[in-house]
Simulated scan of single mutants.
Amino acid sequence: MPSSLKTKVDQRLNSYTPLKSTDRTKFFLNDFFKVIPSDGKENLAQYILECKDDAKLRQLVESIRIGLLIPMKAQGGKTPSPITPSPRSDLEDSIENLKNQNVEPITRSPQSQLRRHCLERDGNKCLATGAYSHTHDHPRNAPTTHLEAAYIIPFALGSFQANTEDDKHLHVWNNLTKYFPVLNRMSFERKHINSEKNILMLDMQLYREFGQFRLIFEETGLAHQYRIKTFRDTATVPIQNLPRNRLVKFRVHKGQWDLPDPQLLKIHACIGKFLHMSGQAEAIDKVLDDFEYCGGLAPSGNTNLQDLLAASSLSLLTSY
């Protein structure tokens, strides 16, 4: 990205006037700018510079929180909800283009087969700890656990009601492709969510940490080798059996199934890093806790109703 464009972004954000001491709009956008890839930075820079007043900048932040971060992190909920519209000038065309793709919703019917493929590919082992599936053949005295199939890009993004304009899914998918354009270069569409390259087998407890972006796989520069990164809020018991050096190497043990895609894992890692460096992980966890306890019907004194509705709009895949 040209340095002149970054300078303009810095000038625009530095000119922002906070509404109150807790207004983190400028810092949110700065942090998000740091973690997303260079082509995503160019798009974000364009959107920031299009915001001619401070209210539009705040609207841009909310469109990222409610139209990307909260739905990606949410684990449940069924109530449809509105998404804060982005102030982006290209939003209407982008959403219309997604509608015109006529993508059929994915279903859970292929999941048993996908699970078999991924278990075979991963040697019936957890990719993080190496523990074997307790329901499959394993060496005598080898550590065993219950394995779950963890989706990198959530299953819910490809699951929607057919023949309806399910805009909440389209907004989230549109945000993903704008801030992570590699999805377009990979030709990775919603119909590809149910594929081996989007799934890794993990210990049941690590599966939850991964789904909540409290455990990520960072690239190391070597093909299919990753460094596992955890955060302050990561549960300590599930990570006790991780390799001491936190390094793991993925390989196909059997079959010809795709390994988890490095680009998809990079997107997951970017979101995880941003959630924690920005403080959004804690804030969104509070939203999800409120939703769990009140069913999204009423916010606590510190939770916005719109955030609760966003938590209910999409869900990450639970075990199957």
Rank of each mutant, 00 (worst) to 15 (best):
R246P: 10
D53C: 01
S81G: 15
Q111R: 14
A311M: 00
L200R: 07
H134A: 00
S94H: 11
S94Q: 12
D285F: 02
H117N: 09
Q111P: 02
K191R: 07
P80R: 12
T164L: 06
N302G: 03
D53M: 00
K197V: 05
K229D: 03
L316S: 04
S94F: 09
G211D: 13
N97M: 07
K26F: 00
Y132M: 00
I106Y: 03
L183D: 06
L206W: 08
Q280W: 05
S187R: 11
P181D: 10
T135V: 08
L119N: 06
T79W: 10
Q101M: 01
R244Q: 14
Q161L: 12
C51Q: 02
P299T: 12
R251S: 15
I64R: 00
V287F: 03
L215T: 15
F217K: 06
F188G: 06
L215R: 06
L308G: 05
D261M: 05
L127E: 09
F217I: 10
P71V: 06
E50M: 04
S89D: 14
S195Q: 11
L68F: 01
R227L: 05
E42G: 09
P260F: 07
L202Y: 10
G123V: 09
Y151P: 03
N304A: 11
K178W: 01
L314Q: 09
V182S: 12
Y47F: 10
S195F: 06
I284T: 00
F33D: 07
F188A: 04
R121Y: 06
L157Y: 02
S187Y: 08
S38H: 10
V252N: 14
S15C: 03
L202P: 09
H169N: 12
F32C: 01
F250T: 13
A55I: 04
F250A: 12
I70R: 01
F274Q: 00
Q46E: 14
V182Y: 11
M1Q: 05
T7K: 11
C294N: 15
S63N: 03
S187F: 07
K249S: 14
E42A: 15
F231E: 06
W173P: 01
